[in-house]
Simulated scan of single mutants.
Amino acid sequence: MSAIQNETSAEHLLEVEDLHVEFRTRDGVAKVLNGVNYHVDAGETLAVLGESGSGKSVTAQTVMGILDVPPGAITGGAVRYRGEDLLTATDERRRDLRGDSMAMIFQDALSALNPVYTVGFQIAEQLRMRRGTSRKDAMAKAVELLDQVKIPNAKQRVKEFPHQFSGGMRQRAMIAMSLALDPDLLIADEPTTALDVTVQAQIMDLLDELRRERGMGLILITHDLGVVAEVADRIVVMYAGRIVEAADAYSLYKTPGHPYTDGLMRSIPRLDLKGQELETIRGLPPNLMSVPPGCPFHPRCPRAEDKCRTEVPTDHNLGLGRISACHFAEEMMSRG
Protein backbone atom coordinates (compact mmCIF):
# COMPACT_ATOMS: atom_id res chain seq x y z
CA MET A 1 0.00 0.00 0.00
CA SER A 2 1.23 3.49 -0.88
CA ALA A 3 2.22 5.94 1.82
CA ILE A 4 -0.68 8.06 0.60
CA GLN A 5 -2.98 5.51 2.23
CA ASN A 6 -1.85 5.96 5.82
CA GLU A 7 -5.16 5.19 7.49
CA THR A 8 -7.45 2.17 7.44
CA SER A 9 -10.10 1.88 4.75
CA ALA A 10 -12.95 1.93 7.27
CA GLU A 11 -12.10 5.52 8.20
CA HIS A 12 -12.70 6.81 4.65
CA LEU A 13 -15.87 7.41 2.69
CA LEU A 14 -14.07 6.36 -0.50
CA GLU A 15 -10.64 4.83 -0.97
CA VAL A 16 -8.85 4.10 -4.23
CA GLU A 17 -5.92 1.75 -3.70
CA ASP A 18 -3.21 0.82 -6.23
CA LEU A 19 -5.65 1.09 -9.14
CA HIS A 20 -4.41 -0.06 -12.55
CA VAL A 21 -6.40 0.40 -15.78
CA GLU A 22 -5.32 -0.11 -19.37
CA PHE A 23 -6.98 0.46 -22.73
CA ARG A 24 -6.48 -2.34 -25.24
CA THR A 25 -6.69 -1.00 -28.77
CA ARG A 26 -5.64 -2.08 -32.26
CA ASP A 27 -2.59 0.15 -31.98
CA GLY A 28 -1.45 -1.32 -28.68
CA VAL A 29 -2.03 -1.20 -24.94
CA ALA A 30 -2.23 2.17 -23.21
CA LYS A 31 -1.55 1.97 -19.47
CA VAL A 32 -3.89 4.71 -18.37
CA LEU A 33 -3.72 4.25 -14.59
CA ASN A 34 -0.55 3.01 -12.93
CA GLY A 35 -1.19 2.47 -9.23
CA VAL A 36 -3.49 5.36 -8.30
CA ASN A 37 -4.03 5.89 -4.57
CA TYR A 38 -6.28 8.46 -2.92
CA HIS A 39 -9.13 8.78 -0.46
CA VAL A 40 -11.87 11.22 0.45
CA ASP A 41 -13.81 11.56 3.69
CA ALA A 42 -17.35 12.71 4.42
CA GLY A 43 -17.63 16.50 4.34
CA GLU A 44 -14.27 16.87 2.58
CA THR A 45 -13.35 18.27 -0.83
CA LEU A 46 -10.56 16.46 -2.67
CA ALA A 47 -9.28 18.14 -5.83
CA VAL A 48 -7.71 15.95 -8.52
CA LEU A 49 -5.47 18.03 -10.79
CA GLY A 50 -3.55 17.33 -13.97
CA GLU A 51 -3.39 17.91 -17.70
CA SER A 52 -5.71 16.17 -20.15
CA GLY A 53 -4.79 12.50 -20.42
CA SER A 54 -3.39 12.22 -16.90
CA GLY A 55 -6.08 9.73 -15.84
CA LYS A 56 -8.35 11.95 -13.75
CA SER A 57 -11.63 11.11 -15.48
CA VAL A 58 -10.78 7.43 -16.02
CA THR A 59 -10.28 7.07 -12.26
CA ALA A 60 -13.71 8.65 -11.65
CA GLN A 61 -15.37 6.42 -14.27
CA THR A 62 -13.82 3.36 -12.64
CA VAL A 63 -15.09 4.46 -9.24
CA MET A 64 -18.60 4.94 -10.64
CA GLY A 65 -18.53 1.66 -12.58
CA ILE A 66 -19.09 3.33 -15.96
CA LEU A 67 -15.73 2.60 -17.55
CA ASP A 68 -16.15 1.34 -21.12
CA VAL A 69 -15.16 -2.36 -21.06
CA PRO A 70 -13.73 -2.99 -23.61
CA PRO A 71 -11.46 -1.20 -24.50
CA GLY A 72 -10.88 -0.38 -20.83
CA ALA A 73 -9.71 -3.15 -18.52
CA ILE A 74 -9.14 -2.97 -14.76
CA THR A 75 -5.96 -4.97 -14.15
CA GLY A 76 -5.42 -4.41 -10.45
CA GLY A 77 -6.26 -2.53 -7.29
CA ALA A 78 -9.35 -1.82 -5.23
CA VAL A 79 -12.04 0.85 -4.95
CA ARG A 80 -13.74 0.85 -1.55
CA TYR A 81 -16.90 2.72 -0.64
CA ARG A 82 -17.34 2.66 3.15
CA GLY A 83 -15.00 -0.33 3.21
CA GLU A 84 -16.87 -2.30 0.51
CA ASP A 85 -14.77 -3.17 -2.57
CA LEU A 86 -16.75 -1.97 -5.57
CA LEU A 87 -14.57 -3.81 -8.10
CA THR A 88 -15.70 -7.17 -6.75
CA ALA A 89 -19.33 -6.13 -6.25
CA THR A 90 -22.07 -7.37 -8.56
CA ASP A 91 -23.44 -5.17 -11.35
CA GLU A 92 -26.73 -4.96 -9.45
CA ARG A 93 -24.95 -3.72 -6.33
CA ARG A 94 -23.06 -1.09 -8.35
CA ARG A 95 -26.33 0.13 -9.86
CA ASP A 96 -27.89 0.39 -6.41
CA LEU A 97 -25.01 2.55 -5.21
CA ARG A 98 -25.00 4.86 -8.24
CA GLY A 99 -27.25 7.81 -7.58
CA ASP A 100 -28.26 6.70 -4.09
CA SER A 101 -24.77 6.75 -2.53
CA MET A 102 -22.50 8.11 -5.28
CA ALA A 103 -23.29 10.56 -8.06
CA MET A 104 -21.29 12.22 -10.82
CA ILE A 105 -21.53 15.54 -12.64
CA PHE A 106 -20.18 15.37 -16.19
CA GLN A 107 -18.25 18.17 -17.83
CA ASP A 108 -20.57 18.63 -20.83
CA ALA A 109 -24.00 19.24 -19.34
CA LEU A 110 -25.66 19.69 -22.75
CA SER A 111 -24.55 16.22 -23.87
CA ALA A 112 -25.38 14.64 -20.50
CA LEU A 113 -28.96 15.94 -20.51
CA ASN A 114 -31.52 14.35 -22.84
CA PRO A 115 -32.66 17.03 -25.32
CA VAL A 116 -36.17 15.59 -25.86
CA TYR A 117 -37.28 15.68 -22.22
CA THR A 118 -37.77 18.66 -19.95
CA VAL A 119 -35.21 19.27 -17.23
CA GLY A 120 -37.85 18.67 -14.57
CA PHE A 121 -38.87 15.33 -16.05
CA GLN A 122 -35.26 14.13 -16.05
CA ILE A 123 -34.78 15.05 -12.40
CA ALA A 124 -38.15 13.62 -11.33
CA GLU A 125 -37.63 10.36 -13.22
CA GLN A 126 -34.90 9.28 -10.79
CA LEU A 127 -37.22 9.75 -7.84
CA ARG A 128 -40.04 7.87 -9.52
CA MET A 129 -37.85 4.94 -10.62
CA ARG A 130 -35.61 4.63 -7.56
CA ARG A 131 -37.85 5.87 -4.74
CA GLY A 132 -41.32 5.07 -6.05
CA THR A 133 -42.30 8.72 -5.64
CA SER A 134 -45.55 9.80 -7.29
CA ARG A 135 -45.35 11.91 -10.44
CA LYS A 136 -46.72 14.97 -8.62
CA ASP A 137 -44.38 14.68 -5.63
CA ALA A 138 -41.37 13.95 -7.84
CA MET A 139 -41.99 17.08 -9.89
CA ALA A 140 -42.40 19.12 -6.71
CA LYS A 141 -39.04 17.77 -5.53
CA ALA A 142 -37.51 18.69 -8.89
CA VAL A 143 -38.68 22.29 -8.37
CA GLU A 144 -37.20 22.25 -4.87
CA LEU A 145 -33.85 20.97 -6.17
CA LEU A 146 -33.68 23.59 -8.94
CA ASP A 147 -34.40 26.20 -6.30
CA GLN A 148 -31.60 24.81 -4.10
CA VAL A 149 -29.08 25.20 -6.92
CA LYS A 150 -30.28 28.80 -7.33
CA ILE A 151 -32.07 28.60 -10.67
CA PRO A 152 -34.48 31.58 -10.76
CA ASN A 153 -38.20 30.95 -11.26
CA ALA A 154 -37.74 27.20 -10.71
CA LYS A 155 -41.48 26.43 -11.04
CA GLN A 156 -41.41 27.66 -14.62
CA ARG A 157 -37.92 26.51 -15.61
CA VAL A 158 -38.69 22.93 -14.54
CA LYS A 159 -40.95 22.70 -17.63
CA GLU A 160 -38.25 23.83 -20.06
CA PHE A 161 -35.84 21.81 -22.19
CA PRO A 162 -32.03 21.77 -21.86
CA HIS A 163 -31.52 23.95 -24.95
CA GLN A 164 -33.55 26.69 -23.26
CA PHE A 165 -30.99 26.90 -20.43
CA SER A 166 -27.70 28.79 -20.58
CA GLY A 167 -24.45 26.89 -20.03
CA GLY A 168 -24.30 27.85 -16.37
CA MET A 169 -27.97 26.99 -15.82
CA ARG A 170 -27.50 23.58 -17.48
CA GLN A 171 -24.61 22.86 -15.14
CA ARG A 172 -26.79 23.83 -12.18
CA ALA A 173 -29.51 21.51 -13.50
CA MET A 174 -26.95 18.68 -13.68
CA ILE A 175 -25.98 19.36 -10.07
CA ALA A 176 -29.66 19.27 -9.06
CA MET A 177 -30.08 15.94 -10.87
CA SER A 178 -27.02 14.45 -9.18
CA LEU A 179 -28.34 15.47 -5.75
CA ALA A 180 -31.87 14.13 -6.26
CA LEU A 181 -31.21 10.88 -4.36
CA ASP A 182 -29.13 12.58 -1.65
CA PRO A 183 -25.77 10.85 -2.29
CA ASP A 184 -22.94 10.75 0.25
CA LEU A 185 -20.29 11.21 -2.44
CA LEU A 186 -20.35 13.59 -5.40
CA ILE A 187 -17.78 13.50 -8.20
CA ALA A 188 -17.63 16.67 -10.30
CA ASP A 189 -15.68 16.13 -13.53
CA GLU A 190 -14.53 19.49 -14.92
CA PRO A 191 -17.79 21.18 -13.79
CA THR A 192 -16.72 24.63 -15.01
CA THR A 193 -15.60 23.68 -18.54
CA ALA A 194 -16.63 26.25 -21.20
CA LEU A 195 -18.12 28.61 -18.62
CA ASP A 196 -17.00 32.21 -18.22
CA VAL A 197 -14.98 33.16 -15.17
CA THR A 198 -17.88 34.69 -13.24
CA VAL A 199 -20.08 31.64 -13.75
CA GLN A 200 -17.16 29.34 -12.85
CA ALA A 201 -16.89 31.06 -9.48
CA GLN A 202 -20.64 30.77 -8.92
CA ILE A 203 -20.63 27.03 -9.69
CA MET A 204 -17.66 26.41 -7.40
CA ASP A 205 -19.27 28.39 -4.57
CA LEU A 206 -22.50 26.44 -5.07
CA LEU A 207 -20.74 23.06 -4.91
CA ASP A 208 -18.88 24.11 -1.78
CA GLU A 209 -22.08 25.34 -0.13
CA LEU A 210 -23.94 22.11 -0.97
CA ARG A 211 -21.02 20.03 0.29
CA ARG A 212 -21.08 21.85 3.64
CA GLU A 213 -24.87 21.74 3.99
CA ARG A 214 -25.16 18.04 3.17
CA GLY A 215 -21.91 16.83 4.74
CA MET A 216 -21.06 14.86 1.60
CA GLY A 217 -17.65 14.04 0.21
CA LEU A 218 -16.76 15.95 -2.97
CA ILE A 219 -14.17 14.93 -5.55
CA LEU A 220 -13.43 17.85 -7.85
CA ILE A 221 -11.65 16.92 -11.09
CA THR A 222 -10.03 19.77 -12.99
CA HIS A 223 -6.97 20.96 -14.87
CA ASP A 224 -7.41 24.51 -13.56
CA LEU A 225 -5.57 25.18 -10.31
CA GLY A 226 -7.28 28.52 -9.94
CA VAL A 227 -10.81 27.16 -9.52
CA VAL A 228 -9.92 24.90 -6.56
CA ALA A 229 -7.70 27.20 -4.51
CA GLU A 230 -10.52 28.38 -2.25
CA VAL A 231 -12.59 25.21 -1.93
CA ALA A 232 -10.25 22.18 -1.77
CA ASP A 233 -9.21 20.65 1.55
CA ARG A 234 -6.67 18.31 -0.04
CA ILE A 235 -5.19 18.04 -3.53
CA VAL A 236 -3.72 15.17 -5.50
CA VAL A 237 -1.81 15.87 -8.72
CA MET A 238 -1.83 13.25 -11.48
CA TYR A 239 0.64 12.73 -14.31
CA ALA A 240 0.77 9.81 -16.76
CA GLY A 241 -1.74 7.81 -14.76
CA ARG A 242 -0.07 8.19 -11.40
CA ILE A 243 -0.37 10.43 -8.33
CA VAL A 244 2.83 12.47 -8.30
CA GLU A 245 1.95 14.69 -5.36
CA ALA A 246 -0.61 14.78 -2.56
CA ALA A 247 -0.96 17.46 0.10
CA ASP A 248 -3.38 19.76 1.85
CA ALA A 249 -4.31 22.70 -0.34
CA TYR A 250 -2.45 25.37 1.63
CA SER A 251 0.84 23.46 1.75
CA LEU A 252 0.74 22.49 -1.91
CA TYR A 253 0.11 26.04 -3.11
CA LYS A 254 2.72 27.46 -0.73
CA THR A 255 5.52 25.00 -1.53
CA PRO A 256 5.04 22.47 -4.35
CA GLY A 257 6.94 19.25 -3.69
CA HIS A 258 7.14 18.00 -7.28
CA PRO A 259 8.54 19.76 -10.39
CA TYR A 260 5.32 19.07 -12.30
CA THR A 261 3.20 20.75 -9.63
CA ASP A 262 5.69 23.61 -9.53
CA GLY A 263 5.36 24.01 -13.30
CA LEU A 264 1.58 24.10 -13.08
CA MET A 265 1.78 26.76 -10.38
CA ARG A 266 4.20 28.92 -12.36
CA SER A 267 1.94 28.83 -15.41
CA ILE A 268 -0.91 30.58 -13.54
CA PRO A 269 -1.22 34.30 -14.39
CA ARG A 270 -0.41 36.54 -11.42
CA LEU A 271 -1.34 40.18 -10.89
CA ASP A 272 2.02 40.94 -9.26
CA LEU A 273 3.85 39.76 -12.40
CA LYS A 274 1.99 41.98 -14.85
CA GLY A 275 3.84 42.40 -18.12
CA GLN A 276 6.10 39.40 -17.61
CA GLU A 277 5.99 36.36 -19.87
CA LEU A 278 4.20 33.36 -18.39
CA GLU A 279 6.28 30.29 -17.70
CA THR A 280 5.26 27.08 -19.43
CA ILE A 281 5.95 23.37 -19.08
CA ARG A 282 7.89 22.41 -22.17
CA GLY A 283 6.88 19.46 -24.33
CA LEU A 284 3.75 17.36 -24.20
CA PRO A 285 2.34 14.68 -21.87
CA PRO A 286 3.70 11.21 -22.72
CA ASN A 287 2.08 8.71 -25.05
CA LEU A 288 0.60 6.19 -22.62
CA MET A 289 1.44 3.37 -25.04
CA SER A 290 5.12 4.15 -24.62
CA VAL A 291 5.68 5.93 -21.31
CA PRO A 292 9.35 7.01 -20.91
CA PRO A 293 11.50 4.86 -18.61
CA GLY A 294 12.30 6.16 -15.14
CA CYS A 295 10.25 9.14 -14.06
CA PRO A 296 7.60 9.73 -16.77
CA PHE A 297 7.97 13.50 -16.29
CA HIS A 298 11.74 13.58 -16.89
CA PRO A 299 11.60 14.61 -20.61
CA ARG A 300 9.83 17.82 -19.54
CA CYS A 301 11.47 18.37 -16.16
CA PRO A 302 13.94 21.29 -15.82
CA ARG A 303 15.86 19.55 -13.03
CA ALA A 304 16.02 15.98 -14.41
CA GLU A 305 19.25 14.07 -13.80
CA ASP A 306 20.54 10.68 -14.96
CA LYS A 307 18.68 8.71 -12.26
CA CYS A 308 15.41 10.31 -13.37
CA ARG A 309 15.84 8.70 -16.79
CA THR A 310 16.30 5.18 -15.43
CA GLU A 311 14.70 4.89 -11.97
CA VAL A 312 10.99 5.21 -11.25
CA PRO A 313 10.69 7.44 -8.16
CA THR A 314 8.91 6.04 -5.12
CA ASP A 315 6.44 7.99 -3.01
CA HIS A 316 8.42 10.15 -0.58
CA ASN A 317 6.57 10.83 2.67
CA LEU A 318 7.30 14.48 3.44
CA GLY A 319 5.34 14.56 6.69
CA LEU A 320 1.91 15.95 7.62
CA GLY A 321 0.28 13.80 4.95
CA ARG A 322 2.41 15.18 2.12
CA ILE A 323 3.57 12.78 -0.60
CA SER A 324 5.79 13.44 -3.63
CA ALA A 325 6.88 10.95 -6.29
CA CYS A 326 10.13 12.75 -7.10
CA HIS A 327 13.75 11.75 -6.51
CA PHE A 328 14.41 15.30 -5.29
CA ALA A 329 11.28 15.85 -3.21
CA GLU A 330 13.20 16.88 -0.11
CA GLU A 331 15.22 19.41 -2.10
CA MET A 332 12.03 20.82 -3.60
CA MET A 333 10.56 21.27 -0.14
CA SER A 334 13.70 22.86 1.29
CA ARG A 335 13.23 25.86 -1.00
CA GLY A 336 10.19 26.85 1.05
Rank of each mutant, 00 (worst) to 15 (best):
V237A: 00
R266A: 12
A249Q: 04
T261F: 12
D262P: 03
V236C: 05
H258S: 03
I268T: 08
R282C: 10
L220S: 02
T261R: 07
D262E: 15
R270I: 07
I235R: 07
G294Y: 13
L271R: 15
A246Y: 07
G257Y: 06
Y253W: 05
R282S: 11
Y253M: 02
R266V: 12
G294H: 10
G275Y: 15
G226S: 05
M238T: 02
D248T: 03
H223S: 01
F297L: 06
I281E: 03
D272C: 09
R242A: 03
P259E: 08
P269V: 10
E279C: 05
P259C: 09
V227I: 10
M289C: 14
A247M: 06
A247R: 08
P292W: 14
D248G: 02
S251Y: 12
G241F: 05
G241Y: 08
S290A: 15
H223Q: 02
L218I: 08
H258E: 03
L273A: 11
P256D: 10
G241D: 02
K274W: 15
L218G: 07
A247F: 09
G294R: 12
P296L: 09
I268V: 07
P296A: 11
H258A: 02
P269E: 08
D272F: 13
E230N: 12
G226R: 05
P292E: 12
Y239C: 00
N287H: 10
R266T: 07
G263I: 11
L278F: 12
V244C: 03
T222C: 00
D272T: 15
P286D: 07
D262I: 15
G275M: 14
P256N: 06
D272P: 02
T222F: 04
C295N: 09
I281S: 04
T222M: 02
S290I: 15
A232E: 01
P293Q: 15
I235M: 06
Y250T: 12
K274M: 15
I268G: 04
V291I: 13
Q276Y: 13
